[in-house]
Computed example of a mutant assay.
Amino acid sequence: MKGVIFNVLEEMVIKKCGMQVWNEILYTQNLDGIYTAGESYPDSELFALVTEISSQTKIPAEELVGSYGEFLFAQLAERYPLFLENKPDLRGFLKSVDSVIHIEVKKLYSNPSLPKFEYEDLPDGRLLMRYHSPRKLCILAEGLIRGASSTYHTPINIEHKICCHKGDPHCDLIIGFPDE
């Protein structure tokens, strides 16, 4: 996992809970908490931090990861506005994640471990984003999508019945755009 992911997690915890809570989390996990944005760190370290944050804040891990995804999107959009350039609407942005956004991420960071998406415009106007990743961070992907929805001021709903956490080989995130 790239350090920028840890940096933004730290920002969220400090903003919502304070520096003391972040320091307690690091102490409990025996981590120094120094993360360089472009460096890679073990996924297990992120998962341990999420588990400890959940324990200290009493926020269920799934809810915490989803909220973090929303916060992460806003921070990444602020740090890397070029990712949003030439994407006038949410649907266009979402459909560009694999073919444009992830290509740009690979230019910024060496060897990022990114999920893969397949897309399908459904007959009823919804968008299917099929998520593939051995990390199984589909809840983070949902949060990122909700964060994009906020940034684009476009209401959505997400259906997530097919899920790798239920034994399925991938996750189907079906995004509805009720205002379209």
Results as ranks from 00 to 15, higher is better:
1 M>H: 10
6 F>H: 12
7 N>I: 06
8 V>H: 09
19 M>C: 06
22 W>Q: 00
24 E>Y: 05
27 Y>W: 11
27 Y>V: 15
27 Y>A: 14
31 L>M: 14
33 G>T: 05
33 G>K: 12
34 I>H: 14
35 Y>T: 07
36 T>A: 01
37 A>K: 15
38 G>V: 07
38 G>T: 08
39 E>S: 15
41 Y>R: 07
42 P>C: 04
44 S>I: 12
45 E>L: 13
51 T>H: 01
52 E>N: 04
56 Q>F: 02
57 T>M: 04
59 I>T: 13
59 I>C: 15
68 Y>T: 02
71 F>C: 02
77 A>Y: 11
77 A>T: 06
78 E>G: 00
79 R>F: 13
79 R>M: 15
83 F>V: 15
84 L>Q: 03
84 L>M: 11
86 N>P: 00
93 F>M: 14
96 S>W: 00
99 S>G: 12
99 S>W: 01
103 I>T: 14
104 E>D: 13
105 V>F: 08
109 Y>D: 07
116 K>M: 06
129 M>W: 05
129 M>G: 03
130 R>T: 06
135 R>S: 14
138 C>D: 12
138 C>P: 00
139 I>S: 01
139 I>T: 10
142 E>Y: 03
144 L>T: 07
145 I>H: 00
146 R>Q: 05
147 G>E: 04
153 H>N: 15
155 P>K: 12
155 P>I: 05
159 E>F: 13
161 K>A: 10
162 I>P: 08
162 I>L: 10
163 C>M: 11
165 H>Y: 10
166 K>I: 09
168 D>T: 05
169 P>N: 06
169 P>S: 10
170 H>G: 01
173 L>D: 09
174 I>Y: 01
177 F>E: 04
177 F>N: 02
178 P>E: 02
179 D>Y: 02
180 E>V: 11
